[in-house]
């Protein structure tokens, strides 16, 4: 019983990391209907920046905060260079340019940090904690707490502030929002920045949990975050969160029953299954496409 509860808490912790990464995707998709292939690569670079700052001797919290800000800046730069000029082109054009930007980031990171897997310092203590007779890992609990605080902050920002409500307006109808005097370009840049910030936070937690930073993390994060976002319903804030948690649980269950070789297969299988059975996600609603 103890074992299962411990695995459950691990699954929720990993899931909350996926949720952080998936939020950026989901936000961008809901505004621009764009699969942001560069997101995974942006947060991979952010994790490397965090590693470099930590190795340079900065204390943990400022180093990670600076890395998150760097992620936001890179996301803004990618938006300015690769997305804004092609925003009104045929649908596949921005997707291709996103992928191109991602490849540039991956090549740049490989040039600076090399193709090998780097170990990430364990900043969160990993000691057993006993709560009500159940032993859980402190690392999982702290990761879960950090993710929940960040998600709650983002949720407050999007649902309660003037700026966030304007962003939701842009999500619903970009052209009308522009006519109502909402500075659409500013909102889009801000959404990219928020996505990059949260994504790098998720990537750093991911790197700590699995004790590794590597170039392929970009693509891995892309598929996992997409699986999470699709599971919950693409474009929905709470959907991305719950989708992430569910994906974490599903992966942990797969590792428990079939072995760790199948961990990465789960997210791929989920993408295909959701498309087959429930294309709008578990919490999404159907909508018709406009031309």
């Amino acid at each position: 019983m103890d074992y299962y509860l411990e695995q459950l808490s691990n699954g929720i912790a990993v899931g909350s990391i996926y949720a952080l990464i998936a939020l950026g995707y989901s936000l961008v998709y809901s505004i621009l209907n764009l699969i942001n292939f560069a997101h995974g690569y942006v947060i991979m670079v952010g994790a490397f920046v965090a590693l470099a700052l930590l190795q340079a001797g900065l204390p943990a919290i400022p180093a990670i905060f600076l890395a998150c800000c760097a992620g936001a800046l890179i996301a803004m730069g990618v938006e300015r260079i690769a997305y804004r000029p092609v925003r009104h082109s045929n649908r596949i054009v921005p997707m291709i340019s996103a992928l191109g930007a991602g490849l540039v980031l991956a090549a740049g990171a490989q040039l600076i940090w090399g193709p090998e897997v780097h170990a990430f310092p364990q900043l969160i203590p990993r000691v057993p904690v006993e709560i009500g007779g159940v032993t859980l890992s402190s690392q999982s609990l702290i990761i879960l707490a950090i993710s929940l605080v960040l998600v709650a902050a983002a949720s407050w920002f999007l649902h309660r502030t003037r700026f966030g409500i304007a962003a939701q307006c842009v999500c619903q109808d970009l052209a009308t929002a522009q006519l109502m005097g909402i500075p659409v370009n500013l909102i889009i840049v801000a959404v990219y920045a928020i996505g990059g910030f949260l994504g790098v936070a998720g990537a750093v937690l991911f790197a700590m949990y699995f004790n590794a930073v590597f170039i392929q993390m970009g693509l891995l994060a892309t598929t996992k975050a997409w699986a999470a976002a699709m599971l919950g319903g693409i474009g929905s804030f709470s959907g991305a969160f719950w989708g992430g948690i569910l994906l974490g649980l599903a992966e942990t269950a797969a590792v428990m029953t079939a072995g760790s070789a199948y961990r990465d297969g789960v997210s791929l299988a989920i993408i295909v299954l959701v498309l087959l059975l429930k294309p709008n996600g578990l919490f999404g609603t159907a909508s018709a496409e406009r031309s």
Binding site: I81, A82, V86, S89, V93, P94, I96, S97, L99, G100, A101, G102, L103, V104, L105, A106, A107, G108, L111
Partner: peptide
């Protein structure tokens, strides 16, 4: 790969 990526963005 980086050159190819930059070319893609420029082409787009």
């Amino acid at each position: 790969p980086g050159v190819a990526g930059a070319t893609l963005v420029a082409l787009m």
